[in-house]
Design a protein around this nucleic acid. Structure first.
Length: 270
DNA sequence: CGTTATGTTCGATG
DNA sequence: GCATCGAACATAAC
């Protein structure tokens, strides 16, 4: 679930449910998710405090704590948040649970355990330490900074979009959608894109991510809500291009599958 | 049993 | 240094 649009929706969910409530107790269901911290260390930092505000950078959710410091959440492939009133409703794969004094609970869920929950003193320092590039939706990430990310690199365009150190937030699914909308083959090389192609790509990064947020990324109804002409609802075995009806093609690299339309996104003859 | 999955990292290799 | 590839991590679904 968690690429930039999904994490943005999770951020809003957390804001709507869990801000400004005293955290009475922290329950760590599986300490492996905490990386280098011990469960007692982690709990001690949070108990008695509250979530004050949140921000997102790429796929990371950062939650400011009363007093000082931040809770950091990364969701891997299967991470999610759930707020509920009764502990009996605690969903499966609850790895960390915050019990609020008012009675509600916020759980960080993660089936595959590929994410991370941690603490940071400073949000900016955390972003630097994680070697994250600019958030893909940050207005400061403009066409000029996009050009400089491309500058001097000769890579497959899809690999570039997903490189979190160049721009943060895009994963395998939304990279496919962005490339489809920009009509670029996943293996098109960045050093061979002309000016118009680069501009189209940049515009679709913004457009696709904003559209996914507006349509409620992460919700089950996302695929129905996306505009006509979006690839994601067809992005599966047997899917067809929403624009021309051609059977979608797939290719694999780095263990990930790309879906694309061989007609609308022709192979640039690498 | 084999394959696949919205992520990231590490080692090997060119 | 740059880029790619496969494997690993961990878990479940098909």
């Amino acid at each position: 679930m968690p690429e930039l649009p999904d994490v943005e929706l999770l951020r809003r969910y957390l804001d709507g449910q869990a801000l400004r409530q005293r955290i009475e107790r922290v329950h760590v269901g599986d300490a492996r998710i905490l990386a280098d911290l011990s469960a007692p260390q982690f709990a001690a930092k949070l108990e008695g405090r509250a979530f004050e505000a949140s921000r997102r950078h790429g796929k990371h959710l950062l939650v400011r704590l009363t007093g000082d410091g931040w809770l950091t959440l990364h969701f891997g492939m299967t991470g999610d948040l759930a707020y509920f009133e009764n502990v009996a409703d605690d969903p499966p794969y609850d790895r960390v649970r915050f019990d609020f004094a008012k009675g509600g609970h916020l759980a960080y869920l993660n089936r595959r355990m590929l994410g991370r929950v941690g603490l940071a003193d400073d949000a900016e320092a955390f972003i630097v330490a994680e070697q994250l590039g600019p958030d893909a939706l940050d207005p400061a990430f403009d066409i000029a900074s996009f050009e400089s990310a491309l500058d001097g690199r000769r890579r497959d365009v899809k690999a570039l979009l997903m490189d979190q150190s160049l721009m943060a937030g895009i994963g395998n699914l939304y990279a496919d959608e962005i490339l489809f909308q920009a009509r670029l083959h996943p293996r098109a090389r960045t050093d061979r894109l002309d000016r118009a192609q680069r501009r189209r790509l940049f515009e679709q990064i913004k457009e696709v991510l904003e559209t996914a947020i507006a349509c409620g990324a992460g919700a089950e109804q996302l695929l129905e809500r996306l505009p006509d002409g979006y690839l994601l609802p067809e992005r599966q075995a047997g899917g067809h291009c929403p624009r021309c009806g051609t059977a979608l093609a797939t290719l694999k690299s780095g263990g990930r599958t790309s879906y694309f339309c061989p007609r609308c996104q022709p192979d640039p003859q690498r």
